[in-house]
């Protein structure tokens, strides 16, 4: 299968005076259409890794290749467009825009790409919201729904542009186990139907076990890399 993403000897050091190395010589690659999970203790460097994969953060040294292309050679606008079209983010904290409604938040990545929203697109957004069980609150402001609903809104937002890759940082952290199960089934379905690549950080062992591959990070190093 094609490698959609490749990390070569990636190091991440925080701080300039007091150096705090968080990632050590990470070599990883992800295949297109695969469903991957990343596990590890709190503070082990999972979010840092995911942010580097998502081009939000820069590695201190080493290369990040997207479909064979080094991101160091891409301009700020190219990176922004790449994030918009190719990646769907679900962050550890929901990060919705409080000034906009649930539906408007879901449509935002599409708006960034196209400026205007078509009727079809609104219908698609509404369907996606139905899929995550939010059709009743779609016109609420993003601040006027529960934490779990916010997290589900963020998932719907990540799906709207049909991205090649979804990066999720504990997307079900705020959800009860039933909802967690539902959401994972949903993500899995999307993965199978659209061949979307998933990289999901999770604490939930049961969820990790459902993935095609489990990568365990320990103190900034890859401790385990299990494929089914």
């Amino acid at each position: 299968m094609n490698k959609i993403l490749e990390l070569n000897n990636v190091n991440k050091i925080y701080g300039t005076e007091i150096k705090n190395q968080v990632l050590y010589d990470i070599n990883l690659s992800f295949e297109e259409g695969s469903f991957n999970s990343i596990i590890g203790q709190s503070g082990s460097g999972k979010s840092t890794l995911l942010n580097i994969i998502g081009t939000l953060d820069k590695a201190t040294s080493g290369d990040v290749l997207i479909e064979g292309k080094d991101i160091k050679c891409m301009s700020a606008n190219q990176l922004a467009d790449y994030r918009n079209r190719t990646i769907g983010f679900v962050f550890q904290f929901h990060y919705l825009l409080p000034e906009f409604t649930v539906l408007e938040n879901v449509l935002m990545p599409y708006r960034i790409q196209n400026g205007k929203v078509t009727r079809d697109m609104i219908r698609k957004a509404e369907e996606t919201l139905k899929l995550v069980g939010l059709d009743k609150v779609k016109d609420n402001l993003a601040t006027k729904i529960s934490g779990g609903q916010q997290q589900r809104t963020a998932i719907a937002r990540a799906l709207i542009n049909n991205p090649k890759m979804i990066l999720a940082d504990e997307p079900t952290g705020n959800l009860d186990s039933d909802s967690t199960e539902t959401i994972y089934d949903l993500l899995r379905n999307i993965n199978e139907e659209y061949k979307t690549t998933f990289i999901i950080i999770t604490h939930d062992k049961r969820i990790a076990e459902k993935a095609d591959r489990i990568v365990e990070i320990k103190d900034g190093r890859i401790n385990l890399d299990l494929r089914k």
Binding site: G54, A80, M108
Partner: peptide, 10 residues
């Protein structure tokens, strides 16, 4: 920051 993560241009 959120908008930029979602790919809005500077």
């Amino acid at each position: 920051g959120i908008l930029k993560a979602m790919g809005i241009r500077n």
